[in-house]
């Protein structure tokens, strides 16, 4: 430390000497580079001022007393700047630590999502979920049983960040504990609603859409708890219809009855479930309309479901300059044969 101070002293002295003689931009440039090095070595502003005056005193004989005194005043003022600087450094360290903790939490959250491959001849399935920050307030779920039935869900916690993410884990475990209702969307939402109502703060709400697919009848059953309405794509007419979505948000009152709807899927028909992060994106102040979403989906509908959702996300992300305002989840379930 003392050694580096000594070499700093020498370096600074030469620099100052040089500058006083030539007043060149070149020396100023070196000074700018030096300041970076000094910051790296934790040289505080007050030490810098002190270095300056001691070098100056040595270089210029009979420096007027006023000049020396004035630097004393400057030094005193610089103490505050030095403290602010050190506080900044410690806050930055803390921020880094928080960041890495958040990364671990985000990984844990990611591990709550299903990862199994869906291999069904009858169905083509794709889902993408991207948090706007590190943690997501969106959740999706899918499950298939030995008979080829499939359950899918998209949920959205009103709220963001860590609290929303913690809520998500509750939803996941609650759903895992209701295996017998996997294929009964309305009943499942009713059970979930009771769990959520008992367990989360009054100012937190969760919207959710749950659907199940019966591969023998080719029916899709679904129910919604105040969730962003999805779409049904009719391949025959090449049109999108909105899914019906009555139903109260989860967690408001303990006893809620959810209505169950059903759709009959022909080959090529598909169902789109999404979170409001998909539709509430904005480009240059303008909302992305639901129409824009269906246009995008149509543009890629010749691709496998997973590629459709990936492509739609890519385009929407670009339209928003790669800045997501809200967590984004998009899920497609298509009947193949």
């Amino acid at each position: 430390m003392e050694e580096t101070k000594l070499s700093m002293y020498q370096l600074y002295k030469e620099m100052l000497n040089d500058y006083l003689q030539h007043k060149s931009e070149h020396v100023l440039y070196s000074a700018q580079q030096l300041s970076k090095e000094m910051l790296e070595k934790d040289m505080s502003p007050e030490e810098m001022v002190s270095l300056h005056i001691s070098v100056f005193k040595e270089m210029v004989e009979d420096l007027p007393e006023e000049v020396v005194d004035s630097f004393e005043l400057l030094l005193e003022v610089m103490i505050g700047y030095g403290l602010a600087h050190r506080e900044f450094m410690s806050l930055r360290d803390r921020q880094r630590q928080l960041d890495s903790e958040l990364n671990v939490a985000a990984q844990m959250q990611e591990s709550l999502l299903p990862h199994e491959e869906i291999n069904l001849k009858t169905l083509d399935f794709g889902v993408i979920s991207v948090p706007s920050g590190k943690m997501s307030g969106d959740y999706y779920h899918y499950i298939q049983d030995e008979n080829g039935n499939m359950g899918v869900a998209v949920a959205d916690v009103i709220g963001k960040g860590v609290p929303a993410a913690m809520c998500m884990s509750m939803i996941k475990y609650a759903m895992d504990s209701l295996p017998e209702q996997r294929l009964q969307p309305a009943a499942l939402l009713e059970s979930l609603n009771r769990v959520v109502e008992r367990n989360i703060a009054d100012d937190m709400f969760i919207t959710m859409v749950y659907g199940s697919y019966d591969p023998k009848k080719h029916n899709f059953y679904y129910a919604s708890a105040g969730h962003e309405p999805g779409f049904f794509y009719n391949a025959d007419t090449d049109t999108f219809e909105e899914l019906e979505t009555k139903g109260l948000v989860l967690g408001i009152t303990p006893k809620v009855h959810y209505e169950e709807f059903s759709l009959s899927l022909e080959p090529g028909d598909f169902v789109v479930l999404l979170s409001d992060g998909v539709t509430e994106g904005r480009t240059e102040g303008e909302f992305i309309e639901r129409d824009d979403i269906t246009k995008l989906i149509r543009k890629y509908k010749h691709l496998p479901a997973q590629d459709i959702v990936n492509q739609v996300f890519r385009e929407l992300e670009k339209m928003q300059d790669f800045h997501l305002r809200d967590d984004f989840t998009l899920l497609i379930l298509r009947r193949n044969v």
Binding site: I79, G80, G82, L83, A84, H85, R86, E87, F88, S90, L91, R94
Partner: peptide
Amino acid sequence: EDGYTTSGGLGAGLPGVKRL
């Protein structure tokens, strides 16, 4: 804690004393 003082986290206050 850094940033707690009434002066709003400009380095001074008791954490500042501790640093000095």
